[in-house]
Design a binder for these strands. Structure first.
Lengths: 331, 331
DNA sequence: GGGTGGACTGCAATCCTTTGCAGTGCCCGT
DNA sequence: ACGGGCACTGCAAAGGATTGCAGTCCACCC
């Protein structure tokens, strides 16, 4: 049905090889020949068959994207960025969702790796060793996680926390609670670390309340412990947790930001719509996806750079001040 | 690097044809031969090369998914359903996001159609004619839209609206406002229609306030007009709009549900977290994705059924009552 | 004028799997 | 004992594009 390269060659009066070159190595063919080929391509609506090309080049023109949960707005945005950037390079994206199951991670990447040139792996929970093993048999770019020797793009969590703490301290807060996410999460560790440093540098005090699920429910569960610390401000692992805090605090009659200021991380769409609107550290999500794609494609084009393995992207968060933070209450 | 079918054949002491048949038409090869092949496959970790197979079978084992906006939680859930079901059938999914640009729709589907066996097209804004043209050169399943002659899965919007209106009327509401989505949207039309019917049947009154963007901002923009209608309840095009309404009503000091009851549609995650928690018509989103995949794969397996073109899925919404609806205020 | 090189172009092999057709060998019926 | 048929297996072509190598042609230089 669809035209193939020989149809084009026949119509243009050249050999298939010339058509192939006219399309992929334009410099190698005479301008007038190239024009004839272009005309034939146009007329027939020819597009090279990807399977056939893939068979010989060994490249599929496809990348994989593995995320824990597509329905999580953070990953949805990221996926959007990946998808947009990939299309820009005429590369297709296979998406796979682990459904938050860390055990499925490696298997999915392996299954995917047979069909794609490389994989963008988001927020993996696998150990460094497992990641290294995965990277053995396919090209991988990590997002939201760093592991030695593997390329990736991550956020500067320390810096984001510094901004949040500076904001709170400027508002007069001295005792700041911290609601962590899953203990094994790379982000939790780095955010906790950044928080400790920032609080110390500004002569304030940190009151960690432990680890909670990175969800609305997690925030609800943490709220009462936050209150019990006597802190006047709280930084939550992410916006969902912060919104859960807001809900529970409201139902206990605790005023935000009157009695307690709340800061989240991510800046998902929902945060703007929360009541009060949530102050948060905005992480450039689509940007992370875009950079991951660039990194991956660069590695595929030039495997040397893959060997060097030191490709990294680092993104900075930006504090978005809304209504959930205010001056510390006078005691 | 990876083993190919000849490696397997050599190891098993058979010809490549036999290996191929042992894997895809087990009935055709002797049990002991099959076992030898299986052992060789196992030992070499052989997996057939998809590109080579696709080249000859004409099937890629891949489907496309086109959505208006991946970051919209409604489509994110749908994508999740599609992806899960496709994996279950060992089919990969290409996702593409039109970025809400109706003009990009057809082009994207066409580009995709070269690389996939079929496409799931969500909430298309294209005209019936354009859709028919698209369906000409690729197998398509529509979601959230019906068009004559094209298979698809859609929600019974009339029924959902009936549930919402019955709920409101039971609470004593007699005048119900309706905030529509984009005028060209299929869902807007059907929801408006269902609403009119339901309101009429229950001897209440509908006060449509026009068409708004299906977003938080759209809801903010519509709120004052809703208030001006004098209605005691409002049904919004979707939850995002309803949450926008909630925000603007709150800032105007109008109590929900004291002064005005609000109902949304979709039941996105955010709705549960709104304040007050939103009463809404829950649409089974992942289910729609799953059914769309089944429909598409069935059509691909048996093109006859595609010709008949009458494959349809219909899903029902379910009213979830939360805190944004209450008894009509006594005047 | 002949030789050299450059600029193109074409041939043919190759990537890996599937599948129509043509065997091969064996069993069974006559 | 022979022919037919069955069950299984192998051969070889096909599918569409890329690419190393070889060839052609022309221009230019000596």
């Amino acid at each position: 049905m669809a035209a193939n390269i020989r149809d084009v060659a026949r119509l243009a009066g050249v050999s298939p090889s010339t058509v192939s070159r006219a399309l992929s190595l334009p410099g190698m063919v005479n301008a007038t020949t190239r024009a004839r080929v272009a005309a034939a391509v146009e007329q027939l609506g020819y597009e090279p068959n990807r399977a056939a090309r893939g068979l010989i080049t060994g490249r599929t023109g496809t990348i994989g994207l593995v995320v824990p949960d597509l329905a999580n707005p953070f990953f949805a945005s990221l996926t959007k960025g990946v998808q947009a950037r990939a299309r820009h390079h005429d590369v297709a994206v296979f998406v796979a969702d682990t459904d938050e199951d860390p055990a499925a991670e490696a298997g999915l990447v392996r299954a995917l790796s047979k069909q794609v040139d490389g994989v963008v792996l988001c927020s993996p929970r696998a150990s460094d060793e497992e990641l290294a093993a995965i990277a053995q048999d396919t090209t991988v770019v990590l997002v939201n996680r760093t592991a030695v020797g593997l390329p990736g793009v991550a956020y500067d969590n320390e810096d984001g926390m510094r901004q949040a703490v500076a904001h709170l301290v400027a508002l007069g807060h001295r005792r700041i609670a911290w609601v962590g996410g899953p203990a094994t999460s790379w982000s939790t560790q780095h955010r906790g670390f950044g928080l400790r440093n920032a609080v110390e540098a500004l002569r304030a005090e940190l009151a960690p309340v432990g680890n909670f699920a990175p969800t609305y429910e997690g925030g609800m569960a943490a709220a009462d412990q936050v209150v019990a610390t006597g802190a006047t401000a709280v930084v939550a692992y992410n916006d969902l947790v912060a919104i859960g805090l807001l809900a529970r605090l409201h139902s206990r009659g605790i005023s935000v930001p009157g009695d307690l200021s709340v800061v989240g991380v991510d800046d998902i769409a929902m945060s703007r719509m929360a009541r009060p609107a949530l102050t948060t550290v905005r992480l450039p999500k689509q940007e992370a996806g875009r950079i991951a794609v660039e990194l991956l494609l660069a590695m595929l084009d030039d495997p040397e750079s893959a060997a060097e393995g030191s490709k990294h992207g680092e993104l900075h968060g930006e504090l978005i001040v809304r209504d959930s933070t205010g001056p510390a209450p006078q005691k």
